[in-house]
């Protein structure tokens, strides 16, 4: 565990070594604010909650989370430092988990900086802060899912741009499967069983129930399994692609 944290600490520091991290956070906050207030009609709704905020969050994550993960393995492979990392006394699991935790911590920092929203809504009305807390938990969970996908796909290439595109595409697939629009569109072409299976592995439905404050054990198990699967895939991909 100690080694994992040492790997994670370096990785997290690397985010802040360049201005990219700050630019990322600013874009994240501005976009989220714009979506919530302008598109989400935060004021006109006249309700003391953060529903519009949490509705837009996964779609914004779709573009921004791959930007966090694209560097993780692609850059190590491009610079050859992966050989250094994996010949230090670090197991594959410690390396995979360390990088994932660093990316998650970074996403959590960006998310934590949305706290003015919570203050605003508390000043304007009396929201159910338990639901808001659940919303943040859901946001962290879906961020972790996207991060796990992005980290694994980052190991497939030496090119960060390709890593970004692959991760966005994959996250998109796992997000839209659950949306009624896509389901309706595919209903004629695809057997109902397949659609049902697709809906079950989709993230957005489970995310929405968590953000509504309904935290079911089977959803938590699903998120944990989903993240675990992608972290495992990450280790396998790194191992397979080491030679190239």
């Amino acid at each position: 565990m100690r080694t994992t944290l040492i790997v994670a600490r370096r990785e997290l520091a690397a985010y802040f070594a360049t201005p990219v991290a700050y630019v990322f956070i600013v874009i994240f906050l501005v976009m989220l604010g714009a979506l919530t207030f302008a598109v989400g009609n935060f004021f006109d709704r006249g309700q003391a909650d953060l529903a519009p905020f949490f509705t837009f969050l996964p779609w914004l994550y779709l573009l921004l989370i791959p930007a966090i993960t694209m560097r993780l393995w692609a850059e190590e492979r491009r610079a050859g430092t992966i050989e250094l990392l994996l010949t230090l006394p670090v197991t594959m699991w410690q390396a995979v988990l360390g990088k994932f935790l660093a990316a998650w911590a970074f996403a959590a920092i960006a998310l934590a900086l949305t706290f003015p929203m919570v203050i605003t809504v508390n000043v304007l009305g009396t929201p159910d802060n338990g639901v808001i807390l659940a919303g943040y938990a859901g946001a962290l969970l879906i961020a972790a899912c996207y991060l796990a996908i992005g980290a694994a796909l980052s190991a497939t290439t030496k090119n960060q741009v390709i890593a970004f595109v692959l991760a966005t595409a994959a996250c998109f697939v796992f997000t839209v499967f659950g949306s009624p629009v896509v389901a309706g569109f595919l209903a004629d072409a695809v057997p109902a069983d397949v659609l049902e299976a697709a809906r079950r592995i989709s993230l957005i439905g489970r995310y929405e129930s968590v953000t509504r404050g309904v935290i079911a054990v089977r959803d938590l198990v699903f998120f944990a399994t989903f993240i675990g699967f992608w972290l495992y895939a990450n280790a396998v991909i790194v191992d397979l692609r080491k030679a190239g």
């Binding site: 370096r10 690397a14 070594a17 360049t18 610079a79 050859g80 430092t81 050989e83 250094l84 010949t87 230090l88 006394p89 670090v90």
Partner: peptide, 18 residues
């Protein structure tokens, strides 16, 4: 093995931003 080994990989890769 890795604990007992000092290894300089080809091209001496290091983290450039550190």
């Amino acid at each position: 093995v890795k604990r007992r080994l000092g290894y300089l990989p080809e091209g001496a890769p290091t983290y450039p931003d550190m």
